[in-house]
Amino acid sequence: MSALSDAALRRLRDAAEAPDLTGTKYEIVGRIGQGGMGTVYRARDRELGREIALKVVRLPEGAPDIAARMMREARTLALLEHPGIVPIHDVGTLADGRVFYAMKLVRGAPLHELPGVSLPERLTIVERVCEAVAFAHAHGVVHRDLKPQNVMVGAFGEVLVMDWGVAKIVGDTTVSLGVGSVAGTDEHAEPTTGHGVVLGTPGYMAPEQAAGDPSLVDARADVYAIGALLRDLCTGNPESTHSDGAGDVPRPLRAIIRRAMSPDPRDRYSDVTALAHDVAAFRAGDRVTAYNENLFERARRLALRHSTPILLVLAYLLMRLTFLAVFGR
C-alpha cells in the first residue's frame, strides 16, 4: 500500500473517528466542530427526517462509571424546556462506548459575530439570556461557561444559550454534565470537575470559579459572566475580568456591569433576575438599583424618560406666551 496523500489521510482520520451509529436512527452529514470534550456533527434523524446536532463526548479516563453518570445528568438537563435553552432530543451510548447527545441544530450567529445591533437590541439580548439562565438556576443548574460564543441569535431574533458542557447541577460538585455545544466548542473544557481543575473561559469566569474549587461556585458565577457579556456588548471590546468598560458607556450601565462583575460574589446581584431587572430598567429609562444618581442626573433621566409630555407642555406654554404677547396688550 503506497503512502496516503494529506487529503486522503484527513478523510480517513475523520472516517475512523466518525462515531459508529449502527443501531441508531442517525447518520452523519458533516462535522461542525471539535473541542476539548468531543466532536459535534451535523447529523440527520432518518425517522423524523430532520437535521440535528450530534455531540459525541470523549470519555475521561479513570472513571468507569462516568458514562452512566453523564447520561443521568443529561436527562436532568433535558428537563430544562425553555425557548432560550437548546433542547436535547436524545442521549445514548455508541457501540464504542462513547456517549452521544442529539440536540436541536441551531442556525444563527453567535453573539460576537452579530452585525450592526443597536444598544437597546443588545440589552434585550442580555435580558433573554438572563431569562434562560434564571430558568436553569431555578432547576438547580449553573451554566459556568457563559460567553458570546455560547449565545446564538437566530434568524428571527430568538436567543439561545448553548454549550452546557461544563454546567453544574447544584449539590453535585464532582461531575459536570458533559453535554454541549452545537456551534461552539470549548478547548478549555474538560468533562470532570474536581478541586484544582478550572473550568470556564478566562475573561468571563468569576474569580471563585477561576480558583478551581467547585464548591464555591453557585448561580452568582453566571451573574458575573453575564456582566462580562454585557461589558462586551456595550464596549465591543473584551477587557480584563475587572474592567467595566469605559468610553461612552452610560454611567448607570457601567454601574450595572461593575456590580455584576464584583470580585466578591456577595457584592453582585443576588441572582440573574435582579440583573435582568436593572438592565430592563436602564433600557426603559428608569432608575437602576446599581447606581446612585445625583439630582441633576435624575432630572435629566426623567426629562428623557418623559420627553414627550414635557415637550407637549412646553409647546403649550410657548403657544400661550405667544398668544398673550400678541393679543394680551
Binding site: 475512523a16 473517528e17 459525541v56 470523549r58 458514562a67 452512566a68 457501540a95 462506548g97 462513547r98
Partner: peptide, 18 residues
C-alpha cells in the same frame, strides 16, 4: 495505547457500551 488511541481516534478504546 489509550493516549495514542484517544489522539488518533477520539475515543478510549478500552471503554465498553454501558
Amino acid at each position: 495505547f489509550r493516549l495514542e488511541a484517544r489522539e488518533l481516534l477520539g475515543a478510549d478504546p478500552t471503554s465498553r457500551p454501558a
